[in-house]
């Protein structure tokens, strides 16, 4: 079986600057990998290049064994789900949560939703706990709820590979916990997950491997790392949501310098 993602020496340019400078990244079937790094380290740019939003300057990307080309030809788009980093899901015209989720059923080669689109979209909304808001305009939803609509839009086509770009940025803790639970169920179904995160947080129990980018270069690819020094002190001001997640990892396990190379 080919690797789900195989990226070799990928370079991506944004305007004048080379933001991703020769990244190698491989994800095998059923892996859950977190891409981490400071703002501007190139993690979002890398993911956006992997899904074909940004052109790759040099290097190659293979998804499910198919080469990513600018025209998008030949890629199994229906097996890939993407959740953008976004605050608002609302456009200039009102649209219901159901309509936005249904739009996830379209991909290259399918310009009209299938017959059972309504049921599929309702299922996906149910998975993120928003079945009751299917008919609501996304404008009327909170930021966290809108983010969950975007997650449902990626889930609706039942992807085998899910790429998420900071899916819980600005999402409150109960929603994060709920989403971590949804993602756990997907990982159990052997869906391959690539998730861009600032901190592992609620997702720590799911993540098998962490890739850390710095200035567009991979500086760590291995077991999840403990939080950076200064972020692990008891009086650290961040609210680390994983501290009291039911069934989550004990925070002390993360502060012990046991895994990987200390930065």
């Amino acid at each position: 079986m080919p690797d789900v993602i195989r990226a070799a020496d990928v370079r991506v340019r944004l305007g004048q600057s080379l933001v991703v400078r020769g990244v190698d990244l491989t994800l095998s079937d059923g892996e859950a990998v977190a891409v981490m790094g400071a703002n501007g380290s190139g993690k979002s740019t890398l993911v956006r290049a992997l899904v074909g939003i940004l052109p790759i300057e040099s290097g190659t990307v293979d998804i499910f064994g198919a080469r990513l080309v600018p025209s998008g030809r030949g890629l199994p788009w229906h097996r890939t789900g993407y959740v953008p980093q976004r605050v608002s899901a609302a456009g200039g015209v009102p649209a219901t949560a159901l309509e936005v989720v249904t739009s996830g059923l379209l991909y290259r080669g399918r310009l009209r939703p299938p017959r059972n689109a309504h049921a599929l979209a309702l299922d996906a909304l149910d998975e993120v706990g928003l079945a009751g808001r299917a008919g609501s305009s996304v404008r009327a939803l909170s930021g966290g709820q809108q983010q969950r609509v975007l997650i449902a839009r990626a889930l609706v086509r039942r992807p085998d590979l899910l790429l998420l770009d900071e899916p819980v940025a600005g999402v409150d803790r109960p929603s994060q916990v709920a989403f971590a639970r949804t993602l756990a169920a997907l990982v159990e179904r052997r869906v391959t997950v690539l998730i861009v995160l600032h901190e592992l947080g609620t997702f720590a129990p799911l993540i098998g491997r962490t890739v850390v980018l710095r200035h567009g270069v991979v500086v760590h690819d291995g077991p999840p790392l403990p939080p950076a020094r200064g972020h692990d002190a008891p009086d650290h001001v961040h609210l680390h949501p994983y501290v009291d997640v039911p069934g989550g990892r004990d925070v002390r396990a993360l502060t012990e310098p046991n895994l990987g190379s200390q930065q």
């Binding site: 890629l75 953008p84 379209l106 290259r108 310009l111």
Partner: peptide, 19 residues
């Protein structure tokens, strides 16, 4: 459906391989 998808979120449409 396709025009809605593209007009609503062009980046997502591109990430779905839509023209």
């Amino acid at each position: 459906a396709a025009l809605f998808t593209v007009s609503q979120d062009a980046e997502f449409a591109r990430a779905s391989g839509l023209p």
